[in-house]
């Protein structure tokens, strides 16, 4: 096998396997969403799962979360550079 055969074969195989990974993500994501039990609004925290008292998280404020996430990215970049 010469180097160009290896190059061609590697790119084709890598593309096919990457596509397979993407398809697995797609199908698994859809399957879990379809068949899994619906999540209750508000999450039971890890402490509760280990025997503590169950605490229900407050309802999520999506807009505030996005703003906070963007601010966190900015401050992270500013800290690093």
């Amino acid at each position: 096998m010469n180097e160009w055969t290896i190059v061609g074969l590697t790119y084709v195989l890598a593309a096919l396997v990457s596509l397979l990974v993407a398809v697995i993500i797609h199908i698994m994501g859809a399957a879990v969403k379809r068949f899994a039990a619906p999540e209750v609004p508000g999450a039971i925290d890890a402490e509760a799962q280990q025997g503590g008292s169950a605490t229900i998280a407050p309802p999520r404020n999506e807009e505030a979360e996005i703003v906070a996430a963007i601010a966190a990215v900015h401050s992270y970049i500013a800290r690093r550079h």
């Binding site: 290896i6 190059v7 990457s18 990974v21 993500i25 797609h26």
Partner: peptide, 21 residues
């Protein structure tokens, strides 16, 4: 975004492939 992410990652393997020859 599995398809876009994997496509771009594959493009960014250009050096990994073409450096071999």
């Amino acid at each position: 975004r599995p398809y876009v992410s994997m496509f771009l990652a594959l493009c960014a393997e250009f050096g990994t492939i073409i450096t071999l020859p």
